[in-house]
Structures are given as structure tokens and as C-alpha cells.
């Protein structure tokens, strides 16, 4: 193959990949009945549930996942492969199975569920259950991406910050965090997309309150395909801005 042909082939392959990616959404645009565009009952509530509770789940994921990711990036301990295996397990478990596992542990008959219920925290078909489902679905993705981001920060810079008289916590906030920010932004975007779009785990442990993914399912069951499309458009509108803005910011920084 001549050298002149190679770039053209690459371009063609890239164009084909883009075309394949775009196909379902072109299909959506064509299938949507724009003249009778309207929402089913409860769609508004589903948007509010998805947006509000996903933000809460994202906050929890960042708050707990960031220290874990930093610890994993900076410490080597005996048996660390167990932690790696645990993260991979959480990642590998099919969403439906993860939902069942959560129900087993946190459900009304589960050991943790009974204890928490006595403390007034019901983790089945409740807002906390919804947040928990999203937390479990997105946390491993966030931790793995954030760990890679922290691993990219030269350790020497953190150590120099210590020698300049700063406490480890201050070094973390003034050196590690700013230097890992691009990778962390990508991790946040990934976690957001995973949490918001989660269906399998949520379906099992938090059928109610209904977020967008479950509402799409019930719309399909009760009203048919035309009732799915408008809510799907709103889903895109709600889900896209955060990862898109973060991605653009990262690429602008890298440029």
C-alpha cells in the first residue's frame, strides 16, 4: 500500500466510526414525532429525580472516591492486589447482578439493611436507595480514572511541597489536586455519565423514585415507543452539558 493511501484510509475509517456512532441518534431524530412532541405524565418528576439525586451521588463519589484514588496512587502495601481485584469486581459485575447483591445486603432482609432501617434509613425504593445504586454503579469508574490522574502527578513535587513547610493535607490541596485536575475532570465526567444513565442497579433497588432511565422503561411498557423519545431528548439535554464542558476544558488546557 502506498504512503499516500494510508492517511486517506485512516480518515475513511474514522469517518465510518463516527457514522456508526451517529446512526442511532439520527434514527432518533427521524423517529421522533416533532409535530406532536409531548411528555408523558411523570416525565418532569423523573428529570428532577435524576438530576437532583445524581448530583448528590456524584458529590458522594467525589468525596469518598478521591481519597481512595489518592491512597491507591501513592501507597504500595502488601495484598494491594486484593484492592485492585475488588475494584475490578465492582466494575465487572453486571448491573442487574449488582442490584441483586445490594438488595441482598441493604434490602429489608439484608444484614446492613435491617440495621439501617432501625436507624431510619430505608435503602429500598427510596431516594437514599437511588443514590446508593448510582454510587455503586459509578464509584469504581471514578476511582480508577482518578487514580490514574494522581499517578500522573510527579511525587517529587509533593515531596518538595513538604520540604517547603506545608502539611501533607495542604500539599494535597495545593499541589496534588491542581496537578491532577485534568484527569480528575475526566473522572468526574465519567462518573456522572455512569450514574445518570444507570438502569440495571437502580431497577432492582430503587424502582421508585423513578429517574429518567427507569421512566424510559415504564413509558415503553405503558405507552409505547413514541413516549420514550421526548424524555430521551430531555435526558441528553440534562446529561450532556457537564461532561461536554469538562471535556472541552481539559482539551483547551492540553492544547
Amino acid at each position: 500500500m502506498s504512503d499516500a493511501l494510508r492517511p486517506r484510509l485512516t480518515t475513511l475509517a474514522a469517518a465510518l466510526a463516527l457514522l456508526l456512532l451517529a446512526a442511532p441518534f439520527v434514527g432518533l431524530a427521524l423517529a421522533t414525532d416533532w409535530r406532536h412532541f409531548g411528555f408523558a405524565q411523570g416525565d418532569g418528576g423523573a428529570v428532577a429525580v435524576s438530576l437532583g439525586l445524581s448530583l448528590l451521588a456524584l458529590g458522594l463519589i467525589v468525596a469518598l472516591g478521591t481519597p481512595l484514588a489518592w491512597w491507591l496512587a501513592r501507597h504500595r502495601v502488601r495484598g494491594q492486589w486484593l484492592v485492585d481485584a475488588l475494584l475490578l469486581l465492582a466494575l465487572l459485575t453486571p448491573p442487574l447482578a449488582m442490584g441483586l447483591l445490594l438488595a441482598t445486603v441493604y434490602g429489608p432482609y439484608g444484614p446492613a439493611g435491617q440495621l439501617l432501617e432501625r436507624a431510619g434509613l430505608l435503602l429500598t425504593n427510596s431516594a437514599p436507595a437511588f443514590v446508593m445504586a448510582q454510587f455503586y454503579a459509578a464509584l469504581p469508574y471514578y476511582v480508577l480514572a482518578a487514580r490514574a490522574a494522581f499517578e500522573g502527578v510527579p511525587r517529587e513535587l509533593e515531596q518538595i511541597a513538604l520540604t517547603l513547610g506545608h502539611s501533607p493535607a495542604r500539599c494535597f490541596f495545593r499541589v496534588s489536586l491542581p496537578l491532577a485536575r485534568l484527569g480528575l475532570a475526566a473522572a468526574v465526567a465519567l462518573a456522572w455519565v455512569r450514574a445518570l444513565g444507570e438502569f440495571g442497579v437502580v431497577l432492582i433497588v430503587a424502582y421508585y423514585p423513578q429517574g429518567i432511565p427507569v421512566k424510559l422503561w415504564t413509558n415503553l411498557q405503558d405507552l409505547g415507543l413514541p413516549a420514550v423519545y421526548p424524555l430521551l431528548w430531555v435526558f441528553f439535554l440534562v446529561a450532556l452539558p457537564l461532561p461536554l464542558a469538562l471535556g472541552l476544558a481539559v482539551r483547551r488546557r492540553l492544547a
Binding site: L157, I160, G165
Partner: peptide
Amino acid sequence: LPPQRRAVGYLPQGHALFPHLNAWQNVAFA
């Protein structure tokens, strides 16, 4: 003593300036 309490000025190979800070911010870090 932990490193933050040792009164040393350490210049490693390659200088280890903070890339996200400009020159005066690097100095002001101390």
C-alpha cells in the same frame, strides 16, 4: 522530624518547580 518541620532548602535535580504556578507563586509557596 517530619519533612515539613526540617529547616532545609532542598533543590532536587531538575529543580522541581510547580508547573501550575508562575515564578513568583513558586517562591511564595514557601
